[in-house]
Design a protein around this nucleic acid. Structure first.
Lengths: 200, 200
DNA sequence: CTACGCTTCCTAGAGATACTAGGCAACAGC
DNA sequence: GCTGTTGCCTAGTATCTCTAGGAAGCGTAG
């Protein structure tokens, strides 16, 4: 029988494409084997399990996302960098919903540490924030808030969470402007009210 | 054989509890039947399908979440209301991860319209924002950004997306303060660069 | 060019799950 | 106690993950 010439990489890419088409939660070994004109067990020469396949797609997608963000923010600073970062993030999530969903699965700390892709996104966030002249721990706090806002927005948008008639793209533009304002006025002094008051 | 006395409601509650225990993605008809000491097909007298079960859990959880938020913001305004809203949101998501995950599945517009739970969360957001004296479309834009930030933060937190050593709770407090500052200085004038310029 | 070995892909099959069809027995109303 | 409805059951189908073991393609050495 003619060989299909599969490799772990080509299988992972095919899985990512399939996930973008049918949704990440519908990515199955059977469906992937069908799309590659191969029987299910053949794939287990290249992947260890469905979970392993999902993690490979996650790492592939995280790398692609980091690449796009890096290209978008290159040579920009301030609001331009913020908007470029955010638009690259959102466009990737909307154009590649299966790949993006893959990046959100919980990964074992060992897997996460072994791959640079996730750390690179965090570093890119910090690099973009340097223009706002924040120092730790504000840098980490602001980075977490930004990534939360981006991730939350695109997932709510993708899942139909914004049912109001207001244009979603217009809201996004305003949100970026608002986040820019937020970063320029980041409250850096210890807050005026004791949120977690002074027990010893 | 003695009857188990199941109803659609009791089955849904048991499903929500199971989802909180084993994770929403591991909520299966078989596992639910086992936890109820019943055979799989017995559940199909009360639910139409696994998808139907998931939607019931989603609506149950959305109602519970709205209730908690409503109780938290009652009688508060300004930053107090914002913090109460956000803390109620985050604490529900962390205490009931399966229920919270259920609220994020895409629902058919008809299902969504037939239930008040989701609309109530949006209304609560708007009510909380009234103290900041925003008017449309800023109200919708700010509400979307807030919900995005809350949702993004708790999902990233729950999925281990915050690996930095900085305390996650402390970052959350600072994020709330930053959002409060943002809402007080919301950039309401048509932005300095023509995002969607002045066609007639 | 043949023989060897490695890898790839296969068939066969076990175990789990979603769901349907159809039956029997438990409860409610009379 | 009888009857009708309802709830839970057994039996069975189709799909999916994953393993065991076999055969055939491919590179290489003689």
């Amino acid at each position: 029988m003619a060989r299909a010439g599969l490799t772990a990489e080509s299988v992972t890419r095919a899985a990512a494409d399939l996930a973008d088409t049918v949704g990440f939660e519908n990515l199955t070994v059977s469906a992937l084997a069908r799309s590659l004109r191969v029987k299910d067990p053949s794939l287990y020469s290249h992947i260890r399990s469905l979970q392993d396949l999902r993690e490979r797609v996650a790492l592939l997608a995280a790398g692609e996302l980091a690449d796009r963000i890096a290209a978008a923010v290159a040579g920009r600073a301030g609001f331009e960098a913020l908007a470029a970062f955010a638009d690259a993030y959102r466009e990737y999530a909307l154009a590649c919903p299966g790949r993006y969903a893959a990046t959100q699965i919980p990964l074992a700390p060992a897997v996460l540490a072994a791959s640079a892709a996730y750390a690179r996104t965090v570093e890119l966030t910090h690099a973009m924030l340097r223009a706002y002249r924040l120092s730790e721990p504000d840098l980490t706090d602001a980075g977490r808030l930004l990534r939360s806002a981006f991730h939350g927005y695109v997932t709510l948008e993708a899942n139909g969470g914004f049912s109001h008639s207001r244009d979603v793209r217009a809201s996004w533009e305003r949100a970026l402007l608002a986040l820019h304002t937020l970063l320029e006025n980041w409250p850096t002094d210890p807050s005026p009210h004791a949120a977690d008051g002074g027990e010893p």
